[in-house]
Design a protein around this nucleic acid. Sequence first.
DNA 1: CTGAAAGCGCTTACAG
DNA 2: CTGAAAGCGCTTACAG
Lengths: 338, 338
Amino acid sequence: MATIDDVAKLAGVSKGTVSNVFSKKRPIGPEATKRVFEAARQLGYYPNHIARSLAIRKTMIAGLRMPIPKEGMMSQFEIQMINGVLNECAKHGFRVLLDTLPEHDDPNQFTVDPVDGVIMLNPRREDLRIEMYRQIGMPLVLVGRPDPMDPGVSYVDNDNAELACEVGRYLLSIGHESILFLNASSDMTVAFDRERGLAAALAEQGMPLPPEQVMNYSRELHRSPTEYGYRAVLETMKSRSYTAVVADTDRVALGVLRAARELGLNVPDDLSVIALSNDARLAQEMTPPLTCVELSAEMLGAQAAQILMEKMENADVVRQHTVRAKLVFRESCKKRPR
Amino acid sequence: MATIDDVAKLAGVSKGTVSNVFSKKRPIGPEATKRVFEAARQLGYYPNHIARSLAIRKTMIAGLRMPIPKEGMMSQFEIQMINGVLNECAKHGFRVLLDTLPEHDDPNQFTVDPVDGVIMLNPRREDLRIEMYRQIGMPLVLVGRPDPMDPGVSYVDNDNAELACEVGRYLLSIGHESILFLNASSDMTVAFDRERGLAAALAEQGMPLPPEQVMNYSRELHRSPTEYGYRAVLETMKSRSYTAVVADTDRVALGVLRAARELGLNVPDDLSVIALSNDARLAQEMTPPLTCVELSAEMLGAQAAQILMEKMENADVVRQHTVRAKLVFRESCKKRPR
DNA sequence: CTGAAAGCGCTTACAG
DNA sequence: CTGAAAGCGCTTACAG
């Protein structure tokens, strides 16, 4: 691979001159410019982005850390999210380094990536990575709020407590009082917020949300989100009978629907089901079409990217945006006769 | 930002030692190791990926060059494609640099990206970039065949001529002889191959494919693929009447359907429509559900990534894979009464 | 097991 | 307008 040295030699100029011909950072005479381009053409020389990045400490690349399912497709949420990030970054001339590798927060494994800033999905509780990015001065924007809250870190998020609360109110308003909540994994801050929100809705009616009405997904226990929904309903419905279930995602709801069928329960007549995410495709294809919550993933992604661009200009800015979620009524929930 | 020098100084060792503690390339005594980790922790030091890449000439990143629509969502094809690439790369510990920036083939703009190899979508005719990658010795795999064909470049692709031929045969078999083909942009090799394929099917029955029956998408002329399908049908149906239209994509077909409605044409009774791509969501939601061709984008992406991994091991390997496309029958095509 | 030094391929004050 | 040289933060023979 030809380097800047080879070109300089062949063109009879210094490396500095070659550098400036390509970067146009300072003017180079037409004679020299021509000789440089000609030499570069002859040698098949193209500037090395890595060497350049090391020297100028800038890559024009944004990092996107987001685990995706090993097998099977990304969810609609993930896709929309990526789309939002990609579009916003492209507008600013940025490319995106997609890091879907399993997360490690072993500090001795952490490395300073070839990016000018990073967007990180689903921070965990006490996520060590946040502190590491701070230490190296890497601009960071979370999708999902930090936990514990930190006035110094930027993020965009739905108001998960509020969203779950609305769902709770809705279910209560149509007569459901015994609700099973198939929540996300307990180490996710969304799980915590949503449980709190649902509890709040019940509290408004003077009702508790007992622990046995809330389950958490667990990668060890459940083979897949769908399996989680399926097993959870099958098992809990033995001992106790609920009239409504709030599923973490459409996929979980898919399992719930299957279990209901096996138990001879009609949805929505015997059981109302609602999901806290909206995979338009999945939700519409289900029988019945699933009532759920639109999280506006594309907006989340776009806003995260936009904030990141701001932070790269000025490291001091901190933005904490909330994107409003809204209920999408389809046919899986129904008023319960008293 | 703390560097390896700072750590070395604080730990009282040489940079080489620090380097080896982190990379484990050669054994370092337990004493020194402890001091190094402790110093690193104190300083908030994390190895710099860029500097490392420059030194070892390896990034563990794969480049994916793929233009995506500025506004609006990626198509199902693009999403599946990315998903395939991402999963396969992750398996090998690679991350992916998504380059969706507009393509330039000005050689003076080209740069050697921080990647160990690249997957490039939709190569153009005489695509200069192919030659540039060759010159710098960067492993390259195309999605879509090179044009002109080149026994030295690796690619995965559908057999577009074959696929269009099958579509042609199918349409002929159900009685359609006057077919309008809304092809892709004429500078894409797929457009060429597909036109050839459709012509071949007609030729089998001794029929020609006259130029006026084939149109090409053009970014300048058409505001969007859907608009393209809409205008094309509206305009051509004035002078000549076809009984079937082959649309480049589901989106184009969407426009065709709209135009047909406005012209008072019933699909499929008066007009059969088929698309050369399968966005499951779109296609199923259309009225009527669209008959189309499944290109297996995820497989294309996964295979491209796999071949790239091979090439990075051994630069000499060349693979040219064909992924079989297949017809998906829905309800937009119908036998034409003679 | 460890260190000193050259090297990866660029950029950029500094001097002319 | 151009060059010589130090520097970006790592790695890796070479020598001990």
